[in-house]
Simulated scan of single mutants.
Amino acid sequence: MVIANNAFVELAEAATFDQLRGRALADFVGRPGIDLELIENQLTKHGFARNVGTVVRGRNGESEEPVELSAVRTGGETPHYGFAIRQIGRRLRDLPPASQELPRSVEQLTELVGRVALKDIVRESTDLIERLCIEAALSYTSDNRASAAEVLGLSRQSLYSKLHRYGLGNLMDESE
């Protein structure tokens, strides 16, 4: 590292920049062997990388803070790199799960690659498939929840829970 601002020094859990000087960015940013390679590939291909979801690890490697990283690279024989790192942990914690709209297509999910961790893409994919199956079962059974639960191999209570989770159906009338 050649230079870093005070915000990065704080994220890296260092007292001063001198504790970071000369260390590789990979010591602090990204999941080992994944994120920085992805960012480097984007920089090589496009000259920039935008809004890549990653983490900044503390100086001792014990803590991780979710961040969004954007980067640029200058051309020439000795390229220089610039990084903008924004903390997103608080923003992620403050979002209620119901307010996050699920992707509706494979294309939208694949666009998340490189910006979101695989485990989060898998979770979103699972949620998407589950929601689509519930919607199909409700359509197939003309909105008969008991039959839809049976078609899906769920208890009615599990189906009601999933309906509530995804905001599906008229949940006002739960006396069915």
Results as ranks from 00 to 15, higher is better:
A12Q: 03
A12K: 00
A12Y: 01
E13V: 06
A15I: 07
T16N: 05
T16W: 01
D18M: 06
D18K: 04
D18G: 13
Q19A: 00
Q19N: 05
L20T: 05
R21H: 15
R23T: 03
R23P: 02
A24C: 10
A24G: 13
L25G: 01
A26H: 04
A26N: 14
D27S: 05
V29Y: 00
G30K: 02
R31N: 06
R31Q: 07
P32A: 10
E37K: 11
E37P: 01
L38E: 12
L38R: 09
I39F: 00
E40G: 03
N41M: 06
Q42D: 15
Q42F: 06
Q42A: 12
L43A: 08
T44C: 12
K45C: 09
G47T: 12
F48W: 14
R50G: 04
R50I: 10
V52A: 10
V55G: 03
V55P: 00
V56M: 05
V56C: 08
R57F: 10
G58V: 04
G58A: 12
G61H: 02
G61V: 09
E62H: 05
S63P: 02
S63K: 12
S63M: 11
E64A: 07
E64K: 15
P66I: 00
E68N: 13
L69Q: 05
A71M: 08
R73S: 11
G75E: 13
G75P: 11
G76C: 09
E77D: 14
E77R: 14
E77Y: 09
T78E: 15
H80C: 09
G82R: 12
G82W: 15
G82I: 08
F83H: 08
A84D: 07
R86C: 12
R90F: 13
R90V: 10
L92P: 09
D94K: 04
L95E: 06
Q100Y: 09
R104D: 00
R104G: 15
R104V: 10
S105W: 07
V106E: 15
V106G: 07
Q108V: 02
L109W: 01
E111T: 10
E111S: 03
L112W: 00
V113G: 03
G114I: 02
R115D: 08
L118Q: 07
D120N: 12
D120V: 01
D120A: 08
D120K: 14
I121P: 00
I121Q: 01
V122G: 06
E124P: 00
E124C: 03
S125K: 04
T126M: 05
I129R: 10
E130Y: 01
R131A: 05
L132M: 10
C133K: 02
E135A: 12
E135H: 11
A136H: 14
A136T: 10
A137W: 01
L138H: 06
S139W: 11
S139Y: 05
S139N: 15
T141H: 08
S142P: 02
D143I: 00
D143K: 05
D143G: 02
N144D: 13
A146K: 11
A148N: 07
A148I: 01
